[in-house]
């Protein structure tokens, strides 16, 4: 995937629901239309980040991996909310 995030959140070592909380806290740090990335080892993040996007009307772009192989989840801010 060739999406360049405007901001990457390092949530390595955080357990659910911390990665989703970090995402919600920092969504407004990026402009509408930009992508925010969450790097998280927590297995629940794979389900909860797409579910968060659905509930908060943000766009779930998909997943790739950080340089160290940890999963990275990409979210596009589509509205003021979060």
């Amino acid at each position: 995937m060739t999406v360049e995030p405007a901001l990457e959140l390092d949530c390595r070592g955080l357990l659910c629901p911390r990665p989703v909380i970090e995402l919600a806290k920092h969504l407004t740090d990026v402009p509408v239309g930009a992508v925010i990335a969450v790097v998280a080892e927590d297995p629940a993040a794979a389900h909860d980040i797409p579910a968060w996007c659905r509930m908060r009307s943000q766009e779930y772009v998909g997943t790739d991996t950080a340089a160290d192989g940890v999963a990275r989840y990409l979210v596009r801010r589509t509205s003021a909310g979060g």
Partner: peptide
């Protein structure tokens, strides 16, 4: 997390 919630795409936390 619960495989049931995950399969439904529901929030698991």
């Amino acid at each position: 997390p619960s495989h049931v919630l995950a399969a439904m795409g529901a929030l698991t936390h």
